[in-house]
């Protein structure tokens, strides 16, 4: 299958700090990849580059056939909006909008708000009955599922999750993993950053970073 993502000799430095060095990585369409490594190893930095939220200092990044390392901030916003679903450890929700409205905002900036579709998305993550609740009225697990529903609403080519279960208990972590498995089955490409070997074990493939270097890349042992 075609590569949906390719990183070629990607480097990222923050002043003196070499956060990423000579990263080469290809991800095929429909693959589920876990990125693991100790704290400060450069996982989030890598996600931000793939997620069009930051630009690599050097190297080439090709996302869905497009050289995003060449694009300006405006085009990066458009790519992020159209091709990427982002999920974070923190639940970045707008506090004064209800669950369904939080999803509709993403729809609006993508194309147009469609409440029916937003409600269906909530239904799929098991939050149909909480559509009119504000984020603070939802549990952590529910908020994360809301974030996932929002990330998926515009049918992204690739789902990027940075510690998606970092703030969740086991039950909620499993619920999130179930959703990922469904997405995976439907053919979505998923890249998950995690500390947790448990979460990592769900992936097809684990990439390990240490001090900004890729130290291993392999299909997980069955």
């Amino acid at each position: 299958m075609a590569n949906i993502l390719e990183l070629q000799d990607v480097c990222m430095t923050f002043g003196q700090v070499k956060a990423l060095q000579d990263i080469n990585l290809s991800v095929r369409e429909g693959e589920w990849v876990a990125i693991m490594g100790s704290s400060g190893s450069g996982k989030t930095t890598m996600m931000n580059i793939i997620g069009c939220m930051n630009k690599a200092t050097s190297g080439t990044v090709i996302l869905d056939g497009e050289k995003i390392s060449r694009l300006n901030a405006k085009d990066l916003t458009a790519i992020r909006r159209d091709k990427i679903g982002l999920i974070f450890q923190q639940f970045f929700l707008i506090s004064y909008l209800t669950a369904v409205e939080n999803i509709m905002v993403a729809q609006y900036y993508h194309s147009m708000a469609d409440e029916q579709e937003a409600l269906e998305a909530l239904e799929r993550v098991g939050l149909g009955h909480r559509a009119r609740h504000l984020p603070r009225q939802l549990s952590g697990g529910e908020q994360q599922r809301l974030c996932i529903a929002r990330a998926l609403i515009n049918h992204p080519k690739i789902i990027l999750a940075d510690e998606p279960t970092g703030n969740l208990d086991e039950a909620n972590q499993n619920a999130v993993m179930d959703i990922f498995h469904q997405l995976h089955k439907q053919g979505s490409t998923i890249i998950v950053v995690t500390h947790s070997p448990d979460v990592g074990s769900h992936a097809d493939r684990i990439v390990r970073l240490e001090f900004g270097h890729m130290v291993s890349d392999g299909e997980k042992k069955a």
Partner: peptide, 16 residues
């Protein structure tokens, strides 16, 4: 700032 950042994450441009 955070709220606007979230809007940026979900696809709002700087202009938005």
């Amino acid at each position: 700032k955070k709220e606007f950042g979230i809007l940026r994450i979900v696809g709002a441009s700087k202009g938005h």
